[in-house]
């Protein structure tokens, strides 16, 4: 089945009750023992370890990068996928991560509000890529989207994509400000057709951040886009995912909506800061059989 795509018209309407039902049904899955352990390791390898505070310093970023490359002494625990920082700290992260497979992601385009001119946004994007960012996390102009200027938003994403060059582009929809699931679906379609490599739920600066219903709607948009175009777009829920249990629930949704192909850091990421320690605590619990304490894990 092929849909006609237009950036101004929703291709499908979302049944909110149905989405919530499906989420709650998927949450009943119970994952134990060796499956749990491998899923936790997978979740670890999908992490975008994030620090996005105005008080961030090069010292904090270096500490985070060390943790990203070497989360724990246990050799079976993988490094995370990327470190996500503000553009002015990209160079620090780049130097710190040299020689490892951990990528550098930078937020850009007047993150988190996106309230600036297109010229400034494109300039910031080029600068971040120049500084050494492998991935750019941009925000859409929610004001324009909500006032119906879909083409403006679409053109802006396409322009930023072009400015990215070889860098991967993640498009943040900031679903907490889009108010309806229909809007989430429309914004997802719009971002993917405009050239996004990843679509991402939130900046982490707005409540609610990532929720399961929103993520499911976006995953289904990715699935439909794949059927229509054959292109695989990545997904990144961000903000509010703090426990290993929540992470497992998200992975179940991915598997059930998109299949095994998407269970890779190339196509799925978690944006989080405190999730890493909870995953570590669960993995060490599986390893030692003893419940763990945050006292024994590094804070950042």
């Amino acid at each position: 089945m092929s849909r006609m795509y237009s950036p101004t018209m929703p291709s499908v309407y979302i049944d909110q009750v149905g989405v919530e039902e499906r989420v709650s049904r998927l949450n009943k899955r119970s994952i134990k023992k060796s499956s749990k352990r491998s899923m936790l390791n997978l979740a670890m390898s999908m992490l975008d370890l994030t620090t996005l505070e105005a008080k961030d310093t090069p010292g904090k970023v270096r500490q985070l990068c060390t943790k990203a490359m070497h989360p724990h002494d246990l050799p079976t625990i993988p490094a995370v996928a990327a470190v996500c920082v503000y553009p002015n700290l990209v160079r620090t992260a780049r130097e710190c991560l040299r020689g490892s497979k951990v990528k550098v992601a930078a937020v850009a385009t007047a993150f988190p509000s996106g309230m600036s001119s297109r010229k400034v946004k494109l300039e910031e994007t080029r600068w971040a890529v120049n500084e050494g960012a492998d991935e750019i996390d941009m925000v859409i102009s929610r004001g324009h989207f909500l006032s119906g200027e879909f083409r403006y938003v679409s053109d802006e994403i396409a322009a930023v994509k072009e400015a990215c060059g070889d860098a991967h582009l993640k498009v943040i929809l900031e679903t907490g400000e889009l108010s309806t699931l229909d809007n989430v679906r429309l914004a997802s379609d719009l971002a993917m057709y405009a050239g996004a490599d990843f679509i991402k739920t939130s900046t982490g600066k707005v409540q609610p951040a990532a929720t399961q219903p929103v993520t499911l709607v976006m995953l289904e948009a990715i699935r439909d886009f794949y059927y229509d175009t054959g292109k695989k777009i990545g997904m990144k829920p961000a903000g509010g995912i703090a426990t290993a249990k929540q992470a497992l629930a998200y992975l179940v949704m991915v598997k059930e909506t998109l299949g095994f192909d998407w269970l890779t850091p190339e196509l799925f990421r978690f944006g989080a800061s405190s999730l890493a320690n909870d995953i570590l605590m669960q993995l060490i619990k599986e390893e030692t059989g003893v419940y763990q304490s945050l006292d024994y894990f590094s804070k950042d």
């Binding site: 003893v290 419940y291 763990q292 304490s293 945050l294 006292d295 024994y296």
Partner: peptide
């Protein structure tokens, strides 16, 4: 054993 071995 759970009451006595919990690290927290």
């Amino acid at each position: 054993s759970w009451f006595s071995n919990h690290m927290d």
